[in-house]
Structures are given as structure tokens and as C-alpha cells.
């Protein structure tokens, strides 16, 4: 770290863009909603979180920024989401954590609720946002995800028709005038993000490897493809000794050159750093950039998806001195 002047600073990423997505915490959804999932399913009661993979990506960007700060090489961090809107609490969290700019790529759909005014409840969640990764189109793709100790979620996608059609004909999720356009269409999501990323021209693009809902992990690949950049899958990424290193899931460190796309898992960083209430309150004046330009939003096509839910029953038994065996035999637990 002696090179305080030229080369090091030049080689350090100066601009990092992180794609993120706010998702409903699907583990919290009711069994009946999993079973009857449709465009109209009301998930308003489920809390929203930044997708955990994206949280890692966001934190990695901030760590690189911290590192740059230490050697006098300022790094500009942009958090970018393609979404109908972004709740103020999320943008303030990102600003308080250290992001210089937060961008919301939207087609200008209703924003009032998220930016201060009242909003209607019962909104369609699958329209909410995109930026991590979505379900890949294609017949019969199935993803089994163990979400927690006592419940599991099973997500399946089926026939989507022509994914290039505008208006989303034939898709459950685009049925209402395309209101839910990019809920599950990874290619469209990536295309729109890539359009904006081309304008930003960051040295480094970070994404979460997948999103919590209907994961396919395809968005980072599509982004790289659209931008013609190399993509690295990594558990974490850092600038060290003047070189940019990504560490793979098996611990190998690879030196890469910018610009590139790095898609990270959720193991490398513990999640986005927390900010104190004072830091959050200090962001009162900061607002996200809402990019409404229609060019980001050619209508997408969502695959039909089918959700299923299965719950593992929990047993509670008294362990008597007589032993577990008797208890199990009696069936009275």
C-alpha cells in the first residue's frame, strides 16, 4: 500500500454500481397464498427485505469504498434497482450505509406511497422490483429451496410462450396491462438494467447471485452478455495491493481487470452494515433518482409460475426419566 500516488489510484475502481432488488420475505407468506399464487395475490402483509444476496453485493461495494478512502482513492457507489418504486426506508438505509447515489428505474407507475404520501395496500407484489435475478423461462423448471427449519417452498415455472412478445400475452403476470412486467422475466430485467449501466459506465458491477423468489441466477449473466463484459461468480470481492481480486466459493483468488460484472453469493459478507438511527435521520434530504424514461421499460413477459408450500410439523414432547421410547410408543406427543 505504498503507492499512494498514481498507479494504485488509477487501478482502483472509481465507480461501482450494485444491482439490488427488494423482495417480499417469502418465508412469511401464508400457505394458502403459496398454493393459490396469482397476479392478484395480495402479499401486502409480508415484510419487504433487500434480497440477501444483493445485501452481500451492496456491502462488498461499501468495503471497497472504505478501502479506497483509506488510500485516498475515492470510490463512488451507486445502488440500482429496476422497480415500480422504492420505499423511502430502503433508500435511506442505503444512503446511511454509504451509497452516494440510489437509482430506481421505473416506468413512472404510482410512486406516491413510497416517497412520502399515502399508498394503497394490497399492491401486487410481484411487480415490486427487480435487479437480483428471477426465474428463468422454460418449461418445467423447478427450484426447491429450503427456507427455514420448519417450512419449505417449492417453486415451479411452466410454459411461457414467446418471451420476446410485448405486452406479455399468455403470461399470468403481465395480464393486467403489463402492470407486473418484470416480476419474473430475467432477460427483460437484465436488459433494462444493462441499458442504464451502459450509461453509468461503472468500473465494477456487482449483483447478488440470485434473488429470494423464483431464483434462476440468470440476471447477472444476461447483464454481462448485454454489456459484453466478463462475469465472475464469487463469494466476495476486494481490492488488495492494487489489484482487484475475486474469491470463488472454493476459496480460489482470481485477479480480474475492470470493467467486469461480479455476481456474489450471500456467504462472503454478513449482509449490509447497520446504520444508527442518527445516521439514518441525517439522510432526510437525500432522495433516490427516479429514472422514469420509458426506454428502460419495454414490456416484458413473465412466465407462468406455480408455487407450492409444504410445512414440516414440529413435535413437542416431555422427556421423562422413563425415556423417550415409551413416549414415542404412546404416540401422545
Amino acid at each position: 500500500m505504498d503507492d499512494k500516488g498514481g498507479t494504485l489510484k488509477k487501478r482502483f475502481a472509481r465507480k461501482i454500481a450494485v444491482c439490488f432488488k427488494v423482495v417480499p420475505d417469502f418465508v412469511q407468506a401464508l400457505a394458502e397464498d403459496w398454493e393459490n399464487f396469482s397476479e392478484n395475490t395480495d402479499l401486502a402483509y409480508v415484510k419487504r427485505v433487500i434480497n440477501c444476496f444483493d445485501e452481500s453485493a451492496l456491502e462488498i461495494a461499501l468495503r471497497i469504498k472504505d478501502g479506497g478512502g483509506k488510500i485516498g482513492a475515492p470510490v463512488f457507489c451507486i445502488a440500482l434497482t429496476a422497480a415500480d418504486a422504492l420505499k423511502t426506508s430502503f433508500s435511506r438505509t442505503l444512503f446511511a450505509a454509504g451509497f452516494d447515489r440510489v437509482e430506481v428505474l421505473t416506468d413512472g407507475a404510482e410512486l406516491s406511497g413510497y416517497t412520502g404520501g399515502l399508498r394503497t395496500y394490497g399492491f401486487r407484489d410481484n411487480a415490486a422490483s427487480a435487479g437480483g435475478a428471477d426465474l428463468q423461462e422454460g418449461d418445467g423448471l423447478r427450484t426447491d429451496t429450503e427456507l427455514s427449519g420448519n417450512c419449505g417452498v417449492n417453486i415451479a415455472a411452466s410454459g411461457v410462450g414467446d418471451n420476446a412478445v410485448s405486452g406479455g400475452a399468455g403470461s399470468d403476470f403481465a395480464a393486467n396491462g403489463g402492470a407486473s412486467r418484470f416480476g419474473f422475466d430475467s432477460m427483460r430485467t437484465a436488459e433494462k438494467l444493462a441499458e442504464r449501466l451502459r450509461e453509468i459506465a461503472p468500473d465494477l458491477i456487482l449483483t447478488g447471485r440470485q434473488a429470494g423468489c423464483a431464483d434462476s441466477g440468470a440476471v447477472p449473466f444476461y447483464i454481462a452478455e448485454f454489456l459484453g463484459l466478463p462475469l465472475f461468480e464469487a463469494s466476495t470481492a476486494a481490492f488488495s495491493g492494487g489489484v482487484f481480486l475475486v474469491e470463488t466459493d472454493v476459496g480460489a483468488k482470481i485477479e480480474v481487470s475492470a470493467p467486469c460484472v461480479v455476481s456474489v453469493g450471500n456467504g462472503g459478507a454478513e449482509g449490509l452494515r447497520i446504520s444508527t438511527l442518527k445516521e439514518v435521520l441525517a439522510t432526510a434530504e437525500k432522495t433516490p433518482e427516479i429514472l422514469r424514461a420509458a426506454k428502460y421499460f419495454a414490456a416484458a413477459n413473465n412466465p407462468k409460475i406455480k408455487f407450492a408450500y409444504f410445512k414440516k410439523e414440529k413435535k413437542c414432547a416431555v422427556m421423562t426419566v422413563g425415556g423417550l421410547t415409551d413416549l414415542l410408543k404412546s404416540g401422545d406427543f
Binding site: D25, A44, Y45, V46, K47, R48, G116, G117, Y121
Partner: peptide, 11 residues
Amino acid sequence: TERDFGAPAPQ
């Protein structure tokens, strides 16, 4: 309401 329930109510 916002933190734990996803704000089903208006702000």
C-alpha cells in the same frame, strides 16, 4: 408496521 409487516397500512 413497516419493519415487521411490510407496511400493509399507509405510511
